[in-house]
Design a binder for these strands. Structure first.
Length: 492
RNA sequence: GCUCCUAUCGUCUAGAGGCCUAGGACGGAGCCCUCUCAAGGCUUAAACCCGGGUUCGAAUCCCGGUAGGAGCGCCA
């Protein structure tokens, strides 16, 4: 993969500044998969440049913010391993004094002013503008201008505070992903930075927070591009240097429509239940909108090593569950089983089975990972190692528990019982030898054994399966199957 | 309506003016291997939104369409 000669990311404007990124969700619901990718990109970019990655909770909307949502965000990020470099993270509601201080300064400096227009008045204004096919925006009726005479403040109304946006010139957002985006100041109206009750609003808090936290690179969803010029103007009014912005496009559902609950799993934590390993989900996510030549699989270190905001796609991408599952499978097949073990353990409990009541999970993972793309599937197909059979798969039993098989199973059971040693080697020799002796294809023997000991015709290689299940369980299940077959055949 | 953004196989993408007869991956189809299911190997179908320009040469640069999307709150 050829490197481009010069990268903006390698030449920061302020070489001595530590790269600082942040992920700033508002706790109004679960951690969305799109949010997780934004967090990933922020994290990767910071780590790539030996910088800091921070979390911030944007809870200024007290109506919709909940403690449960805060917890969901923490849980999701912890599961993914995208935890903040600074803990606990700042909450905006804890910083109201600071915001008020800055607002007071701006009022003093004349970069902000009081506006007494009521909501009803503003609604009326917007409807009229829409009717005239204009962009709905504040008309500046309370904006002080040299020589302008302001109306008398109405009694009994607490004013909001508006930012006094420049009316001339333009703002250039030099987006690291999208390139330069130009906005005319004339298009921007005077946004509210403090509500009637004195609480600050989002666009303002973001600016102050990013400034105070020393954020150098703002990575966020591209639904924020239109906010960016205003935020830059506020920063300039404050005398601060704006950060570098990178707006990442959204993640769409398979049908090309904005991802929603209707598409199934949207919350990060849903992917755990689906059987994804966090590293694999991250791997899929990093490739959704970013690439490094033809490489599909990345370790976390490689991601950190290679990630680059400049190579992030400008167009939205669709979430493809099939490919995500493929990536997960690749991870499962090659990862150190010890890393998979805790998650697999979680899944076994999730399907109602006690991991202590059976073989060690590591060899089970090694035996199953070739045929299981997700841990949910692996847990489901491994239940029989840890709990008694709940019955046989109907089709499999009908197909493999023939009269002939019952005889075979009975004879084989006796041979296995006589085995002095229960190992994959002795098991392999016994079963294969038995089939050869009878002049049968191994499948003829192995399939009935599978159904007998696992309840279904899909298991790892038969010798491995018998070994992992153990002598006692194998023998008793074989016996039960013989009885079952005999009854079935005998009973017609 | 206004502002802003985007456009390569079904999907994720490579592509930085000649290396493109457009590459890889998922998914699809076929074959091989095989104790089940898988895994693996091989083969294969499948795309530059349209129209103009610039250039000896355009998927790539420019302009215009078209189509999608985002934003236009005392939400974040």
């Amino acid at each position: 993969m050829p490197e481009r000669p010069v990268k903006i990311s390698d030449c920061p404007r302020l070489p001595t500044m530590t790269v600082t990124t942040r992920f700033a969700p508002s706790p109004t619901g679960y951690l969305h998969i799109g949010g997780a990718r934004t967090a990933l990109f922020s994290y990767l970019y910071a780590k790539r440049h030996s910088g800091r990655y921070l979390l911030r909770i944007e809870d200024t909307d007290r109506e919709r913010s909940t403690d449960e949502a805060v917890q969901a965000i923490f849980d999701g990020l912890r599961w993914l391993g995208l935890e903040s470099d600074v803990n606990p993270p700042p909450f905006q509601t804890q910083r109201f004094d600071r915001y008020k201080e800055v607002i007071a300064q701006m009022l003093e400096a004349g970069t902000a002013y009081h506006c007494y227009a009521s909501k009803a008045e503003l609604d009326e204004m917007r409807t009229a503008q829409m009717a005239r096919k204009e962009k709905p925006r504040y008309d500046g009726r309370w904006r002080p201008e040299p020589g302008k005479i302001l109306p008398t403040p109405p009694a009994g109304i607490t004013p909001v505070v508006r930012f006094r946006n420049p009316v001339e010139g333009e703002v250039i957002v030099d987006d690291i992903i999208k390139g330069a985006i130009v906005f005319a100041n004339a298009e921007l109206d005077d946004l509210i930075i403090a509500r009637g009750d004195g609480t600050p609003t989002y666009n303002f808090c973001v600016v102050v927070d990013d400034w105070d936290m020393g954020v150098t690179h703002v990575v966020r969803g591209d639904d924020h591009v239109n906010n960016t010029p205003r935020q830059i103007n506020i920063l300039k009014a404050l005398g601060a240097t704006p950060p570098v912005y990178g707006h990442v496009p959204m993640i769409l559902g398979a049908d090309g429509v904005k991802l929603s609950k209707r598409h199934g799993a949207v919350s990060v934590i849903d992917y755990r239940a689906l059987g994804f390993m966090p590293e694999a989900l991250l791997n899929y996510l990093v490739r959704l909108g970013w690439s490094y030549g033809d490489q599909e699989l990345f370790t976390r270190d490689e991601m950190i090593q290679l990630f680059d905001l400049e190579r992030v796609q400008k167009a939205p991408a669709r979430f493809d569950m099939e490919k995500a599952v493929w990536v997960n499978h690749q991870f499962l097949k090659t990862a150190d089983p010890a890393i998979v073990a805790p998650e697999f353990d979680w899944h076994l409990r999730h399907v109602g089975v006690d991991p202590a009541n059976g073989p060690a999970v590591v060899p089970v993972i090694e035996a199953q990972r070739e045929r299981c793309k997700t841990l949910a599937e692996m847990a489901d197909k491994s239940k029989f190692f840890y709990a008694e059979l709940e019955g046989y798969n109907e089709k499999d039993a009908a197909k493999h528990f023939t009269a002939e098989a019952a005889v075979l199973l009975d004879e084989l059971r006796a041979r296995l019982e006589a085995l002095p040693e229960w190992s994959t080697l002795t098991l392999h020799e016994t079963v294969n030898g038995f089939a050869a002796e009878k002049g049968l294809n191994l499948a003829k023997v192995a399939q009935p054994i599978r159904v007998a000991i696992a309840g279904m015709a899909i298991t790892p290689p038969i010798d491995v399966t018998l070994f992992l299940l153990g002598r006692d369980r194998s023998l008793s299940r074989l016996q039960a199957a013989v009885a079952y077959s005999a009854a079935k055949v005998g009973g017609g």
